[in-house]
Design a protein around this nucleic acid. Structure first.
Lengths: 335, 335
DNA sequence: CTGTTAGCGCTTTCAA
DNA sequence: TTGAAAGCGCTAACAG
């Protein structure tokens, strides 16, 4: 493998000059620049990022930390963020981490290793932030979760109001005459987002004077087709009178619908289903899913803008809420 | 941030001893080991991977290079591979690269930077391998594509027979009485996989004495809902007599079905659709998709096993074909 | 504009 | 069993 030293030797310049050319510094003569670039091209030289990061005190990189690879909403947001970042002078790096990992710990390690300018967290558990985010010194934006109550100076946030959105979903079911409503979501102990949405559900139930029994009406599962499939079956066994289900993601809604069909129940004729997120799948599924549409483009947009404000303008961290939309689809039926 | 030096100072040992403990070397006294581990735990010390990789000549890492984040089949395979690798002494690292990137170039860079023991390519363009894989010295397995014709000593492969599988899909449509068949796939210029599957289609058409006109019957698109949606519309415009469609992925099949529904065509009553891959979505969709099931668990299994054979036993690179299955689903109708 | 020098944090000889 | 020292490939002062 060819190193910067080899390039230096062959070009007749010193390594520092080569380094300057590589990093597009202006203080290099055009002659040197051209000569060095020739040789770099000739050998197809690519700098070793380890060495680079090891030495550099700061890079021009923005790291997008995505919690969970399978999340369709995150996939949309990531794509949008990357599209935006491409147009800037910054380099973006996407780091996918396991859903069970601690994103803040990972962030600390990443900061230490890659010295990014800024961080974008897609998803995350506020608990983890509370415990360790103080060790992150880099301007960051928490996307799809609120960081308001955390009170860190370098942590802004952009999210959908999960409570209001879930409330809206249940309201919609109730408006359509449903009284026996089941909920499929994540673990209420582990998933903060699920807790928020659950809280929204409760608000709607209370507001509408509907009785809600968690044991009977809530089934928790992984955010997957399979998980929701099982959860739906549980719910069906527990409550024979169910007429509607709120699934905390579109993927879950699809899993639930398959379970219903497998029991020869029609959606929405026999049971109505509403999802959450508003990913493409919702519109491509049959029936088209009723869902709460999170505006992924806006979430992406504002996140990047806000990060730039922190980064370039030194503005204080703000906490924005992006409005959601109710997409009526075809999976909810009036009774 | 605390470094190995700090640990050394606090423990009273030298950096080399600390390094030994960190890397589980045996030539350390139990006393030293314990003392150092205490301090490491106390400070929550994590070594800087840049420095580590920079110096190390070889790591215990196996890199999984995934081409495209949105590929559901790859997601399944990756998960399975990781599950297997977890049980071994190796560390696995997943690197997602853009579909438009050159995976071999990336691999070279990764080898140079992270010095992995082995490489697993999920997807890839044989053309790229032909041009540059010679520069990769690490044992590798190409998954879901055949590397047989490439003839590299350190490149094994595990794949589904795309030609036979596509042929089987078309055969199935023809068996069901379809004569006017449309195909939705990737770019025939850019996607090797699409070319293979296309070839399989042709074989079936010829075998069954059916006339095939590429212009009229083939629509290319990105492997996404949206892309297939448009492609389906194109096809519909070009051939009013269409009774069946083969989509080169399940995601594409779903996109196509939505396009059909939007034109008030029923699947499978008016038009039959068969997909490819056999991802979970196929069984969760309505109607359940007829599809060619690639056995992702077996693909993952054999890939890892074969890599270990290369790695540990120095066995020669083999090229395996994993059998596929036809899942009949509900989206194909006899006419 | 360019070169010299000193490390970044770690692993790895080589001696002790 | 341990430590000293060299250096991985690169950037970043600091001189010139």
């Amino acid at each position: 493998m060819v190193t910067i030293k080899d390039i230096a030797k062959e070009s007749g310049y010193s390594v520092s000059t080569v380094s300057r050319v590589l990093n597009n510094r202006r203080d290099v003569s055009p002659v040197a620049k051209q000569r060095i670039e020739e040789i770099v091209a000739k050998y197809n030289f690519v700098p070793n990022n380890n060495a680079k990061s090891l030495k550099q005190t700061v890079s021009e990189t923005i790291v997008i930390l995505v919690k969970g690879t399978a999340n369709m909403l995150f996939a949309d947001i990531v794509e949008e963020i990357q599209r935006m970042l491409e147009k800037t002078k910054y380099t973006s790096v996407v780091a996918y981490i396991d859903e069970t990992d601690n994103e803040v710990q990972q962030a600390i390690q990443i900061c230490w290793e890659r010295k990014p300018l800024g961080l974008l967290f897609l998803g995350g558990n506020p608990e983890n932030f509370k415990q360790q985010f103080a060790d992150v010194e880099v301007p960051s934006v928490l996307v799809t979760n609120s960081g308001e109550s955390l009170g860190f100076e370098n942590l802004a946030s952009v999210c959908t109001d999960d409570i209001a959105a879930a409330e809206c979903a249940i309201d919609y079911l109730i408006e359509n005459g449903h009284q026996e409503i089941g909920i499929i979501g994540g673990s209420l102990e582990k998933s903060h987002t699920s807790r928020m949405r659950h809280e929204g559900c409760m608000k709607s139930f209370e507001k509408n004077n509907l009785h809600y029994e968690e044991d009977k009406a809530y089934a928790s599962a992984r955010f997957s087709f399979e998980g929701a499939y099982q959860a739906m079956n549980e719910l069906l066994d527990k409550n024979k009178k169910l007429t509607a289900v709120f699934a905390m993601s579109d993927v879950m809604a699809v899993g639930a619908i398959r379970a219903l069909k497998d029991r020869s129940l029609c959606v929405p004729e026999d049971i109505s289903v509403i999802g959450f997120d508003g990913v493409a799948l919702a519109e491509y599924y049959n029936p088209k899913l009723a869902t709460i549409k999170q505006q992924y483009k806006q979430l992406a947009n504002r996140s990047v803008k806000i990060l730039f404000n922190l980064l370039e303008l030194g503005m204080p961290a703000v906490h924005e809420v992006i409005p959601f939309e109710l997409a009526k689809g075809e999976s909810v039926h009036k009774i």
